[in-house]
Nucleic acid binder design. Structure first.
Lengths: 205, 205
DNA sequence: GTCTATATATGGATAGAC
DNA sequence: GTCTATCCATATATAGAC
């Protein structure tokens, strides 16, 4: 069992990630992070200058994780419908691995719109080939393989259907009285359901 | 111009609401609230015992606002399609008035799952006639007026499409470089688009 | 009811021993 | 690299005058 306890630096990151995602920037205490990592507060400052630095490292990582390799999906062959199905599948699979990420990121963007965070977000999200998406949707509409729809609204709808259940997870669990396990089960089922829903909505008249 | 400046108590609530929605519980400072209300810190404690009390008042109000009178919509006559259209319309209109509410509430539920907040949330949200929704969807499926769909997924899809744009507003603005005005314009257009999208998705084969 | 002044607690950050 | 002890700024909360 060599190296099962990873380096202190790594453990700090994992602890900070957990705490910040749970409680946000101002809600997360350095003491909480130190406890979670099983080390002393002072060590946090040894490895990372201050709370803000630590937070930004976590956020950058999260943002980079949030950006899945969706470009490939839209680069490949196949109908728009196939690509939508592949996208929904990939996106939901990814989020199921890390369910608190979306709320953490939206939340940060909402409350800290002043910092360098905005530019980091734009830098990362700017790599997504939105233009490509839009063009492909427009082309499909013109060819009549899907019904007419504003490309922006379709993209927004797809993201809504993929992300909302994760954002609303706590509320959903409270209302539905589902267990964690059943919730995960529902999300897995949702992969197919969401793709069907979108594709059905796009059927030409 | 009599009474344009409402009572201090009311002004405090408005100020607290603004600050808490903007910065959350731990991020919002009592001093910020006092400044925003144009009064002294001590007065906050005079009217509300402490920060936590003040926060809970705000949250309760918000939760009650979040719950529109949707029951009536589903009590009335008309097809399921008509009701969905009415629901989406009412829900989006309401949210456009108060765009930060959804994120505030989800966020609070996420980070404070311990407090009395959970029970308050359940109490309020428990009044929604979910059973009625479910039954009506199931009936429509059986009659063949809509294609087969899991009622839970349809409800979740509808809420996703209505709420997500508000949750993701900051991210959306950053990516799209839209102005506040264009954003609001897009949301207004979305009322019809979302209803169309759902109803199209439900067309029988 | 509203203010100023102050007590008290908390949390981020640093100094310095080991 | 890791700890203990401590400093200092900030934030909540209270006391007491007006």
């Amino acid at each position: 069992m060599v190296d099962l306890e990873t380096s202190t630096e790594k453990r700090i990151l994992e602890a900070a990630r957990k705490i910040f995602i749970q409680k946000g920037f101002s809600g997360g205490r350095m003491q909480d992070i130190a406890n979670e990592a099983g080390i002393n507060k002072a060590l946090l400052h040894y490895y990372y200058r201050n709370k803000e630095t630590l937070f930004e490292v976590i956020l950058s990582d999260s943002l980079r994780n949030m950006l899945p390799r969706v470009s490939e999906i839209f680069d490949g062959e196949g109908s728009l419908q196939d690509k939508i199905r592949a996208f929904v599948n990939a996106y939901l699979s990814f989020m199921i691995e890390d369910p608190s990420l979306p709320l953490f990121i939206l939340n940060t963007l909402h409350s800290q719109s002043n910092r360098s965070i905005s530019s980091k977000f734009q830098e990362i999200v700017g790599q997504l080939p939105y233009g490509k998406f839009r063009d492909e949707i427009t082309a499909a509409v013109n060819k009549g393989v899907i019904r007419p729809i504003d490309p922006i609204q379709l993209i927004l709808n797809t993201l809504s259907l993929c992300l909302f259940p994760f954002l609303a997870k706590p509320a959903f669990l409270m209302v539905s009285h589902l267990s964690e396990a059943s919730y995960k089960q529902m999300l897995l089922k949702r992969k197919a359901d969401v793709a069907d829903f979108i594709i059905d909505a796009l059927r030409p008249e």
